[in-house]
Write a protein that binds this DNA or RNA. Sequence first.
RNA 1: GGUCAUGUAGCUCAGCCUGGUUAGAGCGAAGGUUUUGUAAACCUUAGGCCGUGGGUCCAAAUCCCAUCAUGACCUCCA
Length: 625
Amino acid sequence: MRILLLHSDFIEYQPISKEVEAAEDIQYKASKKIDEVIVALIAVEKDDDESIIDDVCKELKAYSEKIKCENLLLYPYAHLSSQLATHGTALAVLISIENQARDLFTTVNRAPFGWTKSFHIKIKGHPLAEHAKTIHSKGNGEKKELTLISSALKSEDALNSTWYVHVPEDKLIPINDYAFQKDSALKKLAEYELSKKRTVVEVPPHVKLMKRLAIADYEPSSDGGNLRYYPKGRLMKSLIETYVTKMIHEYGGIEVETPVMYDSNHPSIHSYFNRFPARQYNIQSDNKQLFLRFAACFGQFLMAKDFQISYKQLPLKLYELTRYSFRREKSGELVGLRRLRAFSMPDCHAFCRDIVQAKEEFVKRFELSLKVVEGLGISPNDDLEMVIRFTTDFYEQNKEFIQAFAARLKKPILVEMWKEKFFYFIVKWEFNFVDRSGKAAALSTDQIDIENGQRYNIEFVDSDGEKKYPIILHNSPSGAVERVIFALLEKADMEVHTGKPPALPLWLSHTQIRIIPVSSNHLAFCEKILELLNKNSIRTDIDDRELSVAKKIREAESEWVHFIIVIGDKEAGGKEFVVRERVTKSQYNISIENLMRRIKQEISDKPYLPLNLPKYLSKRPIIMV
RNA sequence: GGUCAUGUAGCUCAGCCUGGUUAGAGCGAAGGUUUUGUAAACCUUAGGCCGUGGGUCCAAAUCCCAUCAUGACCUCCA
């Protein structure tokens, strides 16, 4: 890296035009004057990486102490070197330097990257006023990976918004005037969003449950937030995925598959980075700097760009269930299944002709999301809290629409209003599951995006023969699959506290019926029943281990098996069995046909997949976690 | 990422503060006895580099440092 430090009375600069495709987006092109400042002209070179940043900052600080000046301007200046780094790397390094320098200087400014700029500068006359320095990466062994920090991430703090509560009587009440019900989930959510305080200090219950029920577990040999899923967890995920996909097909979604990694230097993607407040996994492969996708957006946009689309085909709905989406969340934020670095996300984009069509579709997809969530065993009214966020402009132009939309849920809704559009969307809603410790996690969500149609150059031909950019909706009707499991486990744990036996939805339970033979003599008969049940798409297994009946019942109950049938001499050859049912805590006589009918009635609209473990318990490895 | 806490058998944990024979328990596993009727039958055996790496000490699970992992909080969420 080459740096030229200039102790200046003032500098005045003005961005003129973009010089490279990877140029930053900037808000204002006005000229900027800074007095009494160190101007650091910087060229990031080929071999520079993040390991250099500490040294650079030390150098900057040392210089600042020598000349007693606490103001810094970082000024990208490619002309200092002929061995330049790629644009992406250069920007990332500059941003990192900027972030780190903030702690060391009173004021830190950075001139925009990738722009032609004009500037006036007056350099002081003392001997130290001009100082050039070349700094090399530590080059010992492996290069440290670059962390691209998007400008959205930094500027998030600056996001200016006001909060309200929308009540069913079509009113927006400023949040401070709203009387929250004591201990309500909405109150917790509001506290969470406005980050005043967190209620309880406790290990999240779902973490213990996901281990105890052998659904999922941490994998220390991977990166944090990348979990392993045991047979029962894998089956649950498959079922949820199948279900959500089926529902989106019915809505009209067209399923596609797109790559998990992309070139960071692709212009559309690059500028999208800066609109998305997350960190990425970065991969260096030969000369390419790749990143792992954090959503299905790019893949679908890049695909749609190559489609020939007429207004007659709109809204066009593309759908993908990502396995996985990757987000390199800060390590301290990772929690069980609530917040992961790799997760499966159904993502359905609708490309719409105009804002009228977009709003219509927005409503349809809200209905879809309600249905999907309900089907998954989570009640939008009882288990979820809704947040809706929009810009002041959108609200002013669409008051009635917003009010009608918010009134679909017959309960108060949290509202955030932005003064100006900061992200790419103008309106967005989400369902939040609030767990016992007051932590909120978003499930379903949808957004109206007015930027990316143009950014990705997606075009359709309108009725007037003109090419136009569609408005894009981003919907995940269920939210991340792993988060659905998180919510179900947390919900089950809440039920324990109200005295109900905890349970998962029947259609998501690995074992739906457990058959327990009294002795090994009854095995043959058990096998006959099992065949019948499995043929009728009811997942059934047999506990053929040499244990007491009481013990086997105990284990079945602790596995949250919904129905248990004990088979002994009394039942052998007969038609009626005593069934022990978990949810109702009851035992009753029932014929096998009636039991099948009952179960099918409950789950017939849900997908079926066979057992993901041997039907005999004696043949299963014991997963001890 | 920061602060604090935790890491001992497959699992849940005791021992650590105050260093000292061979590191314990329950569950689970293996072998055996029992042929069992609705939430834990009985006996025997195996199972440990006390997270990892360094240090102090005659001596380290125990004290110190580093590191990794996990959790809580801070912060934040498409």
